[in-house]
Design a protein around this nucleic acid. Structure first.
Length: 897
DNA sequence: GAGTTTGAAACT
DNA sequence: CAGTTTCAAACTC
């Protein structure tokens, strides 16, 4: 719940909460400019707005987590909004709705909480109403929403229905937590019916709308719907993203407005489909109103607005994306006001902001979109402070083991659900002390999310369950939101941390243990480190400690944001990658099509960047970070007697050998490369050699040596998360250096060199790769570490990536600003890889450009990537499957535990 | 729930 | 950079 502290928290400068607090309080929104924000702003104004938020985020710093959290290329993977897609989503929503019934139960069980929540909501309402910022917030949110709107038109519609129902049920303006989150029971039931109904109609209506003239649709809709809605639509339609209008509405966010407006317009231009989706959404919502059982007819302006706000809330709460969509299309002052009236609204808004951004990133293929997503990522921290409700963003997919564990274990959908459950818990925790209710809620969420996992890749979820689904999609897309999510979660706790602290250690411990497995959130129990060291999972994950934590003397709280930031900086100064994801995901060398054939990498192929050092646990217990992350051990591991069920080091080595052999063949064709070198390079690349998929890789390499080479080249250091490890030949094992940094550093040891390398590799290699990789594999995962070539270079490269739909741009954008910033001192990289993987000395870099025999040739690359995250190129379906698999694994583990 | 084990992080 | 210590999670009883 909103904690007064947060609002009070004097963190003017970088306060993560500042934005959130601003939204709540009348105070003008503090939009700070930061290098990152500036960078973003350069790309798109919208981003800039987000950037401001980013600054606020505690993680915000240039800290790697944010970087890593940045949306992945995956957005590329997402198809632009289209009628078909929308229809699919609608179906998915329908499923979700059906599942929502399950949620109902949980909701009912936790109704007791609702009352309390309402009270708090009222408080919040007061605070929110005080300022016009709320409106601004809505506006602010609205922009990102567009993207979502396109995608989640159906879901949004459903949400709208829900909101209608909610409106009826809660005309008094108070929304039950149920309604807000999941829609009340009644709503759920109605929604279910409506969903079914809609699902049938949604496709037709959507398509029709898409095809039909937007204006006509809107006009019709407006006529049919309440005038208030029409006002909103008019405004929306006329301006949609008219900045001027927004400016009027949102004075506080003036700067953001422009940015948003531009970004939105750009986005729209780029993604006309999204617009259609939005429109369809609007029309659909109206249609729903007419079709639905809900007595839309009687709706007054306010009612309609309220509906919107409600739906928006529901969307936001349940699913950020849908919310964003709704907000985007609907964003009206009234609606905003109404929304703001609800305490949850504020939180939801914040969430919606971040979520919307996320959605944008996911959907967008444009650089701007990417930036937006990044911004969104950054924005999440804001939520942290204010939002009692946590946004259900993809949880940690990958950054830290902590997050990884969660994500992996839960499966993405599961993770999302868990997040949601946690959010609910945290939300309810304050008011509701009944753990059973909480558990029930979480369980319900899990249930809901579980079935959904297999469903649509990218559904926009109106309901909580759908939310988890969407999150899942996001994760699959490549968002590494874990830290953010956690933040949010923790933010819910917000001031509630005190409560946690107050809780008996045992109780906390239990929660922790439970939370880790059940909630998918790992929580710390630090006693001496004050949660300011990497020992602390929360801190390591870039999130504040929260309710589940049983830490003592914790400083990893919003109140101590400065301290946290400083500490992080210190740690990062020592080890820039300290907060980087521990799990590296393979970059897809092969075109998507190939992967579909069986080459596609799955999370299982992920590897621990540093590798484990287990000696007694045989990598069969959670002591082993590899095992904990559900990834197999690799050469990088120095474990003894490895029996990792996810992949033994031995197997990995064998695979490597096989690969090397195949590589030899390929090499013979291309260029002579020392076998040893190849081997090492491959070793460096866990993905290709993953024990799980050795045969395929080997075969590919052998058969398509040329292709592999090309790909490998293109695959240079992946920026993605932290590091991309170029394949270089090196001595088998070098003592591990400080951290993964070594790898990264090696790759990008000198920014200039790295650039050269990247640019050279791209430029020189691209021509070939282009033809070969026309399939559009993502080679570049925006890796923060990876030095970004100047824009000029990028342009050159863009051509290469053009086939990929501008992935390159996106990736580039994804690159953490820290990494991007050349000025930023990058810790000198050591030649030795931490895991003993020896990285080729800098000279390799020089060679890259000039000679084909460069280290890149091996084509093996390491990319640090969130474990849960899916290979960028991998189809969402695949990702899901992998997620499911991981989740299953996780469940198994849980059961075992 | 207390105590032990384990391995990562931090320190020297 | 290697070795040691510290730490907190994971695990066992």
């Amino acid at each position: 719940m909103d904690s007064p502290k947060l609002s009070k928290s004097p963190i003017p400068s970088a306060s993560a909460f500042a934005s959130a607090s601003a939204s709540i309080s009348s105070s003008s929104s503090p939009v700070q400019e930061s290098p990152f924000s500036n960078y973003i702003s350069s790309l798109s104004p919208i981003k800039h707005d987000k950037a401001a938020h980013v600054a606020q985020g505690f993680v915000g710093l240039s800290s790697p987590p944010l970087v890593f959290t940045s949306p992945r290329i995956n957005t590329l993977g997402r198809p632009q909004s289209s009628s078909v897609e929308i229809s699919q989503k609608c179906e998915g929503d329908k499923k979700i709705i059906n599942e929502s019934c399950i949620l109902e139960r949980s909701v009912t069980e936790s109704q007791g909480l609702v009352t309390d929540i309402k009270n708090e909501d009222n408080k919040d309402d007061v605070a929110v109403q005080l300022g016009s910022s709320s409106e601004c917030v809505d506006e602010y949110l609205a922009d990102p929403v567009e993207t979502d709107c396109a995608k989640s038109a159906c879901s949004v519609k459903l949400n709208l229905k829900q909101s209608n129902n909610v409106l009826q049920s809660s005309v008094d303006g108070l929304l039950d937590l149920k309604n807000i989150k999941f829609g009340s029971k009644n709503n759920v039931g109605r929604e279910v019916d409506a969903a079914q109904f809609l699902s049938g109609q949604s496709e037709e209506s959507i398509e029709r709308k898409l095809t039909s003239d937007e204006k006509l649709l809107k006009i019709e809709n407006e006529q049919g719907s309440a005038q208030g809605i029409s006002d909103g639509f008019q405004k929306f339609e006329s301006d949609r993203f008219d900045l001027s209008s927004k400016e009027k509405e949102c004075k506080n966010f003036g700067p953001q407005k422009d940015g948003r407006g531009d970004g939105c317009s750009n986005f729209l231009q780029q993604l006309p489909g999204s617009l259609l989706g939005v429109q369809s959404y609007e029309g659909f919502a109206k249609n729903i109103g007419g079709d639905a059982d809900v007595p839309v007819h009687s709706m007054t302006h306010e009612a309609s607005e309220l509906q919107r706000s409600m739906s928006r809330r529901c969307l936001q709460f349940g699913e950020a994306q849908p919310e964003a969509t709704a907000t985007c299309s609907i964003s009206t002052n009234r609606a905003n006001n109404i929304i703001s009236s609800t305490s949850l609204a504020t939180n939801s808004e914040t969430e919606s902001l971040s979520s919307s951004h996320l959605d944008l990133s996911a959907k967008s293929r444009t650089r701007q979109l990417v930036n937006l997503s990044q911004l969104a990522m950054n924005m999440i921290p804001q939520c942290y402070g204010n939002s009692s409700l946590t946004v259900l963003k993809p949880s940690g997919i990958g950054l830290h083991l902590n997050s990884i564990v969660n994500a992996t274990s839960m499966g993405q959908g599961g993770t999302a659900s868990m997040k949601l459950a946690q959010a609910i818990k945290s939300t309810s925790t304050t008011s509701c002390q009944t753990t059973e209710n909480i558990d029930n809620c979480s369980d319900a969420f899990e249930k809901v999310s579980t079935p959904q996992e297999g469903a649509l890749e990218q559904k926009v979820c109106t309901i909580a369950g759908s939310a988890s689904e969407s999150l899942f999609a996001e994760e699959s897309v490549g968002f590494h939101m874990t830290p953010n999510t956690k933040r949010k979660f923790s933010s819910e706790d917000g001031d509630g941390n005190d409560m946690f602290d107050q809780q008996s250690p045992i109780k906390k411990r239990k929660k922790l243990s439970n939370s880790t497995d059940g909630d998918g959130c790992k929580r710390c129990n630090c006693k001496k480190t004050k949660c300011l060291k990497l020992y602390c999972d929360c801190f390591a994950a870039g999130i504040y400690c929260a309710e589940p934590c049983s830490c003592q003397g914790c400083f990893n709280r919003p109140e101590y944001e400065e301290t946290v930031l400083e500490t992080r900086k210190q740690i990062e100064s020592r080890n820039p990658l300290a907060f980087a994801p521990k799990i590296v995901q393979p970059v897809t060398e092969f075109p998507l099509s190939n992967r579909e054939d069986g080459n596609r990498k799955t999370p299982s192929s992920a590897r621990h960047k540093r590798g484990c050092n287990c000696k007694r646990s045989m990598c069969l217990k959670k002591y082993c970070e590899c095992y904990q992350a559900n990834v197999g051990c690799s050469i990088g591991c120095r474990c003894e007697g490895c029996k990792n069920v996810y992949g033994k080091k031995k197997d990995y080595c064998v695979t490597e050998e096989m690969v090397n052999r195949s590589g030899e063949i390929s090499e013979s064709r291309v260029a002579a490369k020392p076998k040893k070198e190849i081997f090492h390079s491959e070793l460096c690349d866990p993905y290709h050699l993953t024990p799980l998929t050795p045969s395929v890789q080997c075969s590919d390499h052998g058969k398509n040596a040329s292709i592999s080479r090309l790909l490998s080249r293109r695959c240079l250091p992946s920026p993605e998360s932290d590091l991309t490890v170029l394949s270089y030949a090196k001595s088998p094992r070098s003592p591990r250096t400080s951290d993964t940094n070594d790898i990264l550093l090696e790759t990008s040891s000198s920014s200039s060199k790295a650039r050269e390398l990247t640019s050279l590799s791209r430029v020189q290699l691209d021509p070939r790769s282009r033809s070969l990789t026309s399939g559009g594999s993502l080679h570049w995962h925006s890796s923060p570490i990876m030095p970004m070539s100047p824009l000029n270079d990028n342009k050159k490269l863009q051509g290469l990536d053009s086939a990929d739909g501008g992935l390159y741009d996106i990736l580039e954008d994804d690159m953490p600003e820290v990494l991007k910033d050349t000025s930023m001192p990058i810790k000198p990289v050591k030649a030795g890889s931490p895991n003993g993987k020896r990285v080729s000395p800098p000279h390799n870099l020089h060679q890259l450009g000039s000679s084909s025999s460069g280290p890149l040739r091996s084509g093996r690359k390491f990319i640090l990537k969130a474990v849960p995250s899916f290979p960028p190129l991998t189809p969402c379906i695949d990702a899901k499957g992998s997620c499911n698999q991981s989740r299953n694994n996780f469940q198994e583990n849980r059961s075992n535990d």
